[in-house]
Design a protein around this nucleic acid. Structure first.
Length: 282
DNA sequence: CTGAAGACCTGCCTGC
DNA sequence: TGCAGGCAGGTCTTCA
């Protein structure tokens, strides 16, 4: 499910609710998701007040006032949804793995934050907020696509002598974070670059266009609230509307909006890529 | 070292 | 209608 725009959308939809809430309890309903859940997760989160919600790459972080951060990765099918308590309470659904009970400062208003993930590719863990950037998974993360460093020269340097196809290269978190399968295809289409092009062969002008295209596509997707292909919802349980703007992704054998050629689907490293053979030349 | 493939899971769609 | 097979938004690990 979630690439950078989807995670950013969830962050924005949650932050208006949960900052300031205290975690009164955290309940796990299984021992592991993608990895084993740490046994002190509940104890660490309990009684912490949420002072900030952030996104790093595709990770969502809740900073607590007890100097710990809860770290969520939603994998392919994860959701993090906020529910206000109603009279009936919340009936746990089949794939709800973690339920966080919340209370506002007056302790009168109660709410829940629910982590759901059918495929269980997601992860949830915690660490000291001060150690975040040394932490096992986050320390390998490269720059954000919205950062100033993300420009054509940076990519030129990263791609030096690389034969890796450009599609795989822009999805590599050690180069730039947050570009997943949908937006990689879309960005390459917007740049007119063929997904199989060896990354090292791109000229500086093409890289400039690629950088611009990635940023444009991601911004548009965030504005549309992300892309819902099947089951993505934000923290308010609402879908995203970027699907209607997709130019190539999931459009195998349909007409290109630019030139009417048939969009082609291609498997690259086990992932589907879509491109227009007319607009995107090798 | 690099790049590709496999692994982790469940659900849904397609085609026989 | 029922079942097998393939595919899915991510990413870490293993293999060639």
């Amino acid at each position: 499910m979630p690439e950078l725009p989807e995670v950013e959308t969830i962050k924005r939809s949650l932050e208006k609710y949960i900052v300031g809430y205290k975690i009164t309890s955290l309940t796990t309903f299984r021992d592991s998701l993608r990895y084993q859940l740490s046994s002190d997760l509940a104890a660490t989160a309990g009684n912490g007040r949420i002072i900030d919600i952030r996104r790093i790459a595709k990770y969502l972080l809740l900073d607590l006032d007890n100097h710990n951060s809860l770290i969520f990765h939603l994998g392919m099918t994860g959701r993090l949804v906020f529910k206000t308590a109603d009279n009936c309470g919340y009936q746990r659904q089949k794939h709800d793995h973690i339920i966080i009970d919340l209370a506002d400062s007056s302790e009168k208003e109660k709410a829940k934050l629910i982590f759901t993930d059918p495929r269980r590719f997601g992860m949830v863990y915690h660490c000291l907020t001060s150690d975040l950037y040394q932490e096992k998974y986050l320390r390998h993360m490269a720059i954000e696509p919205f950062s100033k460093q993300f420009d054509a020269n940076y990519l030129k340097n990263c791609f030096k002598n690389k034969k890796l196809p450009i599609k795989s290269a822009i999805m590599d978190n050690r180069i730039v974070v947050g570009v997943g399968n949908i937006y990689a295809s879309e960005s390459l289409f917007l740049s007119g670059i063929h997904p199989l092009r060896p990354a090292g062969t791109l000229q500086i002008a093409e890289l400039e266009l690629l950088v611009k295209s990635i940023v444009t596509i991601l911004c548009q997707a965030i504005d549309a609230g992300g892309t819902t292909l099947k089951d993505f919802v934000n923290g308010d349980n609402r879908p995203g509307y970027f699907k209607q703007y997709l130019r190539v992704y999931d459009r195998n054998q349909l007409d290109c909006y630019n030139c009417s050629a048939k969009i082609v689907k291609l498997m690259q490293s086990g992932r589907a890529s879509y491109y227009c053979p007319q607009c995107q030349r090798l």
